[in-house]
Computed example of a mutant assay.
Amino acid sequence: MKSNLALSLGLAALVGLGAVLPAAAQTTTAKPATTAAAAPAAAKKFYVSLKSGSKGCEVVSVKPTSKMMVGKHSFKTEADASKALAADKACKA
């Protein structure tokens, strides 16, 4: 009788742990891993481009063709590209 009671208590303890452990494991939160591939996607570049079909220039976020691009490089911010647009002689025409 004592062995049956001990066996029943032991099984009850194992079943109880089996129910508690998965629940405890689910409460932990994992931080998402950052990847090096995600960083370049966040970096946006701006360019000064001649307007197609009309005089003047505009700031664009997609690199224009070499014939339409004003200058030879990109800008980190739209404000920097706007300053370059205002200073360029080709854009004032």
Rank of each mutant, 00 (worst) to 15 (best):
A33Q: 06
L21N: 06
G16A: 15
L5N: 05
S3Y: 14
G53W: 05
A86S: 06
S61C: 06
A42I: 10
M69S: 15
Q26W: 04
K67Y: 11
S66D: 15
F46G: 10
K63C: 06
M1V: 11
M69E: 04
A81K: 06
K92D: 04
L11M: 03
C57L: 06
A90Q: 08
A87S: 12
K44V: 14
K67A: 15
S49F: 07
M69K: 06
A36C: 10
A23L: 12
G53N: 07
E78D: 05
K44W: 09
A24H: 13
S49K: 11
E78F: 06
T35R: 13
K44C: 03
S74Q: 09
H73M: 06
T28K: 02
K2T: 13
V20D: 05
L85C: 09
A23I: 14
S49T: 07
A6M: 04
T29D: 05
V59S: 12
A39T: 15
G71N: 01
V15E: 00
L11N: 08
S61V: 13
K45C: 05
K92W: 04
T34G: 07
K76N: 14
N4I: 11
E78L: 05
E58Q: 15
L85T: 03
D80F: 00
G56C: 08
A24V: 05
G18L: 09
D88E: 03
Q26E: 14
D80Q: 10
V70I: 14
Y47M: 08
V48E: 00
A36G: 10
A81V: 02
K83Q: 13
K2D: 10
L9K: 03
L14C: 04
F46E: 10
L14A: 15
S74G: 07
T65Y: 12
K83G: 01
L21Q: 09
M68V: 05
L9W: 10
G16N: 09
K2R: 07
A25H: 11
A87K: 00
L5G: 04
S3A: 15
A19I: 13
K63N: 06
D80R: 01
M68L: 09
A81N: 06
H73R: 11
A39L: 12
F75T: 03
L9N: 03
K83H: 09
K45Y: 15
A30C: 10
S54Q: 15
L9R: 05
V15M: 08
A84N: 00
Q26L: 12
